[in-house]
């Protein structure tokens, strides 16, 4: 068994194992709060923080957590960091806190975080867990942001709150509504699938 190079732990979260587009994990927040780019970015960063901190904690404590009670321990660790983030966002920007609503607290049940704790952090050293969590966090944030950008441009004719097309652009209201989340995500999935398909076609030819 040869150990893969450590940078790979970071890079795989960006594309090959992208949490949203490839593993289809953590979809609830990805769809619910991606109606504007700024919400998507805030949610992505909050999730990445919890992912990173819980990754470090689980990895540090992996020798002390009994196997039978591991899930409960992970959930406790994750819930503590989510509480921290919840209060931190309320302190930083009340407006953002209101628009994200209960979805910050819902980071606790994001399958991505528990999944990484169970599948990676509980088996690997702190250094590798940090890289893995950062990669997954960045991959998640980028995915959320790309959905958010599409929905905000089409749905409210703006990007990060700045108006884009001055006149004559009919906004697609459906994109800011819940169904727009499903459509934007489906669109990105098609793009990702198409690129993967082309890559797969190219490889045997070489």
């Amino acid at each position: 068994m040869n150990q893969p190079p450590t940078t790979d732990e970071f890079v795989k979260g960006l594309w090959r194992d992208n949490p949203v587009f490839v593993q289809v994990l953590g979809m609830c927040p990805a769809l619910a709060v991606s109606n504007t780019a700024i919400n998507a970015l805030a949610m992505g960063l909050a999730t990445s923080f919890v992912l990173l901190m819980s990754g470090i904690s689980v990895s540090l404590l992996r020798r002390f957590i009994p196997r039978e009670a591991r899930i409960v321990c992970y959930i406790c660790i994750i819930a503590s960091f989510v509480t921290v983030v919840d209060y931190a966002i309320a302190a930083i920007s009340l407006e953002l806190y209101r628009s994200l609503g209960a979805f910050i607290a819902l980071i606790v049940v994001n399958c991505l975080i528990l999944g990484r704790a169970e599948a990676f952090a509980s088996k690997n050293t702190v250094g590798r867990s940090v890289l893995d969590a950062l990669g997954m966090g960045v991959g998640f944030t980028v995915a959320l942001l790309s959905i958010g950008i599409v929905r905000e441009i089409l749905g409210s004719n703006s990007l990060f709150g700045i108006a884009l097309f001055p006149d004559g652009f009919q906004t697609w209201t459906v994109m800011v509504l819940p169904s727009g989340g499903f459509f934007a995500m489906a669109l990105w999935l098609l793009v990702v699938n198409r690129i993967k398909e082309r890559q797969a076609l190219k490889e045997p030819a070489q």
């Binding site: 289809v24 459906v174 509504l177 819940p178 169904s179 727009g180 989340g181 499903f182 459509f183 995500m185 489906a186 999935l189 098609l190 699938n193 198409r194 398909e197």
Partner: peptide, 18 residues
């Protein structure tokens, strides 16, 4: 083939949601 699986399910869910 490209749409099969999650993408198709997402579009169906979007229409249901609408």
């Amino acid at each position: 083939q490209l749409v099969k699986g999650t993408a198709a399910a997402l579009v169906v869910a979007g229409i249901l949601s609408m």
